[in-house]
Each structure stands twice: as structure tokens, then as C-alpha cells.
């Protein structure tokens, strides 16, 4: 009788251990997903804003064809990468940010453009979107760190191995331009 009770208690402890660890792994994974979708919304918003921007500035910036083409190219590349891995997205978005940075430098030479209300409101939206990207990136990386730690640490690593929880990638910025937060000039 006592042996049976002991066995039952041990079994219960093992079950509780499994369930709680599994659940917290799932929770962490969902938090990472949620954080990623927040970044994703902002990235999409940036992709949507850029054609409008190009359309608005085209008439003014006749001598900057190359800069504008660079942006368009980087944008379509970033859109292509958006279904890929986090690393690919990060790389493509970094080069888009770089192209945008170039653009902001050039804008300085066009005082007429800087007085255009339509351009100013687009500029505000883009600045804000870039800020939102960088703030939500911080949040995403924090969540990934929690999740990856959980996967690596004992004893949850046993459960993670059994149920195939894999580590997530950080959203890292590669270029020097992105490492400093967007520097907007107008």
C-alpha cells in the first residue's frame, strides 16, 4: 500500500514537472511570435509608405534618380525577404534603412520639398515607423533571449529536446547606419 502511494506521488511529481515546463516553453514561444508580429506590422507599414514618398518627391528630385531607384530596389528586396528567416529579413531591412538614410541626406538640398506639406506628413509617418521598428525590435530581442535561455537551461532543456522546441534568431542590425538609431534630417 505505502509503496503504491509513493509510486503515485512520484508519478504525480513527474507529470507536474513535465506539464509546467512544457507550458512555460509554449508561453515563451508565443511571446516571441507576438513580438515578431509587432515588428512585422511596422515593416509592412514602411513598405506601404515608400511608394507614396517616391511619388511625392519624384517631381522635385529629378537629379537623384539613382537614390530613388536604390530605395525602390531595396524595398522590393525587403518585401521578397519578408517571408524568409529572421536573419534574411533583418539583412534586407537594414539595407533598406541604409538607402533611406542616403535619401534623407540628399533631401537637405531641396528646400522646396521641405516646405511641401504632403512630404512633411509622409516624412513624419516614416520617422515614426522607423522608431517603432527599433523599439519593437528591442522587445523582440528580449523575448528571444528569455526563450532561448529557457531552451538551454536545465531542466527545461529536456522537455525542449523531446518536443522539438528550437532556438529563435535575434533581429540584429548589420550595417553601421542602422546601429545608430535612424538619424533623420529635414
Amino acid at each position: 500500500m505505502t509503496v503504491l502511494i509513493i509510486l503515485l506521488v512520484v508519478a504525480a511529481v513527474v507529470v507536474i514537472f513535465f506539464v509546467s515546463n512544457y507550458n512555460s516553453l509554449v508561453r515563451f514561444r508565443n511571446q516571441v511570435k507576438n513580438a515578431w508580429s509587432q515588428i512585422d506590422v511596422q515593416l509592412k507599414r514602411r513598405h506601404d509608405l515608400i511608394p507614396n514618398l517616391i511619388e511625392t518627391v519624384k517631381g522635385y528630385m529629378t537629379h537623384e534618380k539613382e537614390t530613388l531607384e536604390n530605395i525602390t530596389r531595396a524595398r522590393s528586396e525587403a518585401m521578397k525577404a519578408s517571408s524568409g528567416s529572421v536573419g534574411d529579413v533583418a539583412k534586407a531591412e537594414s539595407s533598406l534603412s541604409g538607402a533611406m538614410g542616403q535619401f534623407y541626406v540628399v533631401v537637405e538640398n531641396y528646400p522646396d520639398l521641405k516646405a511641401n506639406e504632403n512630404f512633411l506628413s509622409l516624412q513624419e509617418e516614416l520617422t515614426s515607423t522607423e522608431n517603432k521598428i527599433s523599439f519593437s525590435r528591442q522587445n523582440y530581442n528580449d523575448q528571444v533571449l528569455f526563450y532561448n535561455n529557457k531552451i538551454e537551461m536545465f531542466p527545461s532543456n529536456i522537455i525542449a529536446g523531446m518536443f522539438n522546441f528550437t532556438k529563435d534568431e535575434f533581429f540584429e542590425v548589420k550595417t553601421e547606419a542602422e546601429r545608430q538609431a535612424p538619424k533623420v534630417q529635414f
Binding site: 509587432q38 513624419e124 509617418e125 520617422t127 515614426s128 522608431n131 517603432k132 523599439f135 519593437s136 522587445n139
Partner: peptide, 8 residues
């Protein structure tokens, strides 16, 4: 926009 950024 700024309020939204800080919310994030």
C-alpha cells in the same frame, strides 16, 4: 505617433 512609439 510619439505616444504610439512610447507605448511600444
Amino acid at each position: 505617433n510619439v505616444v504610439e512609439e512610447m507605448t511600444i
